[in-house]
Design a protein around this nucleic acid. Structure first.
Lengths: 206, 206
DNA sequence: CCGGCCATCCACCGATCGGTCGATGCTGTG
DNA sequence: CACAGCATCGACCGATCGGTGGATGGCCGG
């Protein structure tokens, strides 16, 4: 009995590619039962089709992959994240993903990963594993608290300390404290470098 | 006689998807004659296979799509850029691309675009056209000079004005002037916002 | 129950930055 | 040739920022 797969990706071309690759590499063991173009559709189709494995992109319009994973946590199907970027690994695993692959993976590896995911094995792309190790080695280093992230987002959009304070309904002193903590965590010395480093680490997005 | 297409994209899955989509949408009119995984391979295969149209991703390891387009300019095949991001439009067209599509395009549109490109028509994704109009309307707005980009890169990495001046062998006053020009072009008021805006516009990359 | 992280707040000071006046010379294009 | 854009430099001033050294309370986990 083949593994039932649901594909969730906003690019039709990528969905086509996944179908073609899986059919070519493991036609007997894998069958694609559905395709979703955003997180909401993925959650709905997962309930309707009860797939074994969901191939999930993280960046999608509307409901993104991360929240979709949280919605799906514990409902049956295992989620294999398939995305372009190697950040977001820890959040994805925390949200309930079983594996994390990159889109530059060769089709054969992809097929193997789908089968492994179905068996409950955690699949990590090699490049991803190293990054994960880094993050675990340095606790808190680089992990910003929700509040700190809000402050940094405002600063990245041009807010002064005073403006950020007003936007968050806190005092300017608190904003400065948050920023000092951010500097320490990102290992930088000023707001401009903090914004740059945050974008490089994928903490801030377009 | 079908249009001969060469696919250049670093993701095997995307290449599969393009093959499948083109085969499904226009099997009689389009034939994929080759696939390349980076810019260098694309240039080599273009010479060997003499395709009519090259579907080219811009972000690839090794030689990127932009330089590949420049190499191919005037050698015969027309280049249709197919990428995820809607920046880089103007540079791509200047480099010699005939069209610019986004990866979220539906397969049918993609097939039509390939045929149109072969006829020499310029194909632009709707979202791209608007952005292009913006850039033309406001000359210089948003386009940073090479020197300004260097300054901004240093600032994004945490350099003070003095440090940036030292790194570029110019005076601190010049750095400040460059920064003021940057602020005006990006429509921001400080270095942190400039860095953020630059990342959002894809002027700075990881 | 205590330590750690988070979030909040205060005051002071020196350094840096941004704004605004300039100015010069070199390019390339109409 | 005139004009625009680029790159360089100078001086001044006020505003903002970063650094320091605190303080409080809440919450969670060992």
């Amino acid at each position: 009995m083949p593994v039932r797969v649901l594909i969730a990706d906003d690019h039709p071309i990528v969905r086509d590619g996944l179908c073609a690759a899986l059919a070519r590499e493991a036609a007997d063991d894998i069958v694609v039962v559905g395709e979703a173009g955003d997180g909401e559709e993925a959650v709905r189709l997962a309930a309707d089709l009860s797939p074994d494995v969901i191939l999930m992109d993280l960046r999608m319009p509307g409901m993104d992959g991360m929240t979709a994973i949280r919605r799906l946590a514990g409902t049956g199907p295992r989620v294999l994240v398939l995305t372009t970027f190697d950040n977001d690994v820890l959040p994805a695993l925390e949200a309930g993903a079983t594996g994390y692959l990159l889109k530059d993976a060769p089709p054969a590896e992809l097929a193997r990963a789908v089968l492994a995911t179905h068996r409950g094995e955690t699949v990590l792309a090699p490049a991803v594993a190293g990054r994960l190790a880094d993050q675990v080695r340095r606790p808190a280093r680089g992990r910003l608290s929700p509040r700190e992230l809000e402050v940094l987002r405002l600063v990245a959009e041009g807010a002064t300390n005073k403006e950020a304070a007003a936007a968050l309904f806190i005092s300017e002193a608190s904003v400065k404290t948050h920023l000092l903590h951010i500097y320490a965590k990102l290992d930088v010395r000023d707001r401009a470098a903090a914004v740059g480093e945050a974008y490089r680490r994928g903490l801030l997005t377009t």
